[in-house]
């Protein structure tokens, strides 16, 4: 540090100030747009399958629907992911795991809830063993359908990208 103890008495902690200034600058329009553009095209969903919609999610990542063209590639470790797809029903046992995985992801992070079950229980609405994802996680986009078609997954991704680029995504504000 250049200024030492006496300097920080007058100028404040330079490093902290610099960090504050950098954050202020990043939140300003040209840089923020650049950042959000970057985030929008590097969505890494964590490989976390909660229920049977995972079969359609796998089809969305497969060649025919090829979600990778949106910059969207499932990845194993939650530490390197910024998107969580709740693939269908979230049972009570799985909900604990979902929260653990979500907490391990670095910010900014986003949640997409896939399938009717993830909206309000779907066909299992009166089951005693399910949790509604919106009660425990900040969901950005819901995908209706039981199961949603892979095209619907792609549409949700595009929608999330738009939200991120407009700065509307909840994950950016946390």
């Amino acid at each position: 540090m250049v200024c030492g103890i006496s300097g920080s008495m007058w100028l404040g902690d330079l490093e902290r100030t610099a960090r504050k200034a950098a954050r202020w600058l990043v939140e300003r329009t040209p840089i923020r747009s650049l950042r959000d553009w970057g985030i929008a095209f590097s969505l890494w969903p964590v490989h976390f399958t909660t229920a049977c919609c995972g079969a359609e999610f796998a089809a969305a990542s497969a060649p025919r629907f090829d979600a990778e063209r949106f910059g969207f590639l499932p990845f194993v470790a939650p530490r390197q992911c910024n998107l969580m797809l709740i693939e269908g029903t979230l049972t009570k046992k799985m909900a604990d795991a979902a929260i653990w995985v979500y907490e391990q992801m670095p910010e900014p992070k986003f949640v997409i809830a896939m399938g009717a079950c993830a909206i309000d229980g779907g066909i299992f609405w009166n089951s005693y063993n399910i949790v509604r994802p919106k009660d425990i996680l900040p969901v950005e986009v819901f995908i209706p359908g039981c199961p949603p078609r892979p095209e619907a997954v792609a549409r949700a991704v595009i929608k999330l990208q738009k939200r991120i680029r407009r700065g509307e995504a909840i994950g950016l504000k946390v």
Binding site: K92, K93, N126, S127, Y128, N129
Partner: peptide, 21 residues
């Protein structure tokens, strides 16, 4: 299948009621 913490009436007994439409 049930969480370890599950307590109460076993679910498939008839006196365990779920909501119906």
């Amino acid at each position: 299948l049930l969480p370890e913490s599950y307590e109460g009436v076993p679910p498939l007994r008839k006196d365990f009621k779920v909501k119906v439409e």
